[in-house]
Write a protein that binds this DNA or RNA. Structure first.
Lengths: 224, 224
DNA sequence: CCTGTTGGTCAACGCTTGTTGGCAACAGTA
DNA sequence: TACTGTTGCCAACAAGCGTTGACCAACAGG
């Protein structure tokens, strides 16, 4: 059965994740609240692989984070990675699923408009330090097209809407969002990827103090 | 002779460039004006390799820019790359030698202080589009320690001094320089590496209009 | 107790990588 | 002319890569 399924696909030798034995049932569709597709005995292994993958991608980037090193860190055999995630690309796609957990745009409008920049910058820094996913995505995005596309998607789906709510003319929300992203990503690059000593040493509050007015202006200034 | 030199080194199996036959004479020391160490018949080949390397590093990053692909683009044999640059690391080091060509700090003090940000941002964007070296460095720096160190060195040696000249207290020039770098690198990341469509589409003058006040503030504001 | 499915290991495949040494053609000098 | 160093190509090496399929152990359900 497992073999027959495997053999039924080589007619379409595409680079997509190969969706091996169990996966089709794992995410048939994403409902809204705790659908719990089905608990499997291998869930622990899956999670371990994902955690190891994030760590390696964040530390080494896409090419140097080998499936072998990821498997080693997860304490299992490399072939398991292939079974559960189909391919290296598929593994990265799964590892780079990110929720920025940004405050809802409505909540932002509640507070005084001139605090939006500050709370956004502060939230970004927290989110960045929360786990290694964003560092992984940034590192991979610099050299891997799939990574770059994912970043673009996040910009559009998660930062864009916020800009649309707080900027004067919703029509140029994308531009505002891109400006905000340029400053936030730039600081993340300096602090978490390139690790400029000065940028690393700056306490979080000081970073916020400096960046907040910038982001605020990018979002709400009528014009440059 | 060549063999004896090669065999004299394996006692120190370090990862440094191996400095093969000709290179020791090529750059004995860097004088100031046109020392012209010595014209060689292979100078054209060397230059072709360097140009190809910059192109590949900029497009693919460190790992995916293989010596074979670089050699192919330069129209020569892969082994030539090794002979002239010792190793892949050595080649990158040579390809990532960068002069930002920033205006001398003195010249900046001449013009009205509130124009420093604008002229700096404008100059950066021009320099970035002048060739592919900066894109290469940014892409490589995201995954390669040597690349990250080189960026750090540029920040210190080329941006630091400028900040020291125009900021209120020279003592925190490094912090100012890092802030400026975070914004400039972030925009470069969005425009030239991740290629966010909105960031790419923005005309240069508009980018300058938005970033100039930011950089200006990072450099000259008494405090955040 | 059997039987089919699942979780996991092992060994190997085909391929690409950085790197090396040998060899031929050429240039300059004596 | 003969000699010496430079330039270049070729074929090969060992190591590492993503990926595959055969095989075994543990479980689940009748």
């Amino acid at each position: 059965m497992q073999d027959s399924e495997t053999r039924s696909t080589p007619a379409t030798p595409e680079a997509k994740p190969r969706r091996s034995d169990a996966t089709p049932e794992v995410k048939p569709r994403r409902s809204d609240s705790t659908p719990e597709p089905k608990p499997r005995r291998s869930d622990a292994t899956r999670a371990a692989i994902l955690a190891a993958a994030r760590e390696r991608f964040a530390a080494d980037g896409y090419e140097r984070a080998t499936i072998r090193s990821i498997a080693k860190e997860a304490g299992i055999d490399p072939s398991m990675v292939m079974r559960y995630y189909g391919s290296k690309e598929g593994l990265f796609a799964a590892a780079a699923e990110i929720d920025l957990n940004l405050p809802a745009p409505m909540d932002l409008r509640m507070q005084p408009t001139d605090h939006v920049g500050r709370s956004l910058v502060s939230h970004f820094l927290d989110r960045w330090e929360q786990d290694e996913v964003l560092t992984a995505l940034l590192r991979v995005g610099a050299t891997n097209p799939a990574g770059a596309e994912r970043m673009q998607q996040i910009l559009k789906e998660q930062i864009g809407p916020i800009a649309a709510q707080v900027c004067p003319d919703p029509a140029d929300a994308p531009r505002r969002a891109a400006l905000v992203a340029s400053q936030v990503l730039g600081m993340a690059l300096a602090r978490f990827v390139l690790r400029f000593p000065v940028a690393v040493a700056m306490p979080k509050e000081e970073v916020v103090d400096w960046l907040a007015p910038t982001v605020q202006r990018y979002l709400t200034a009528p014009e440059p």
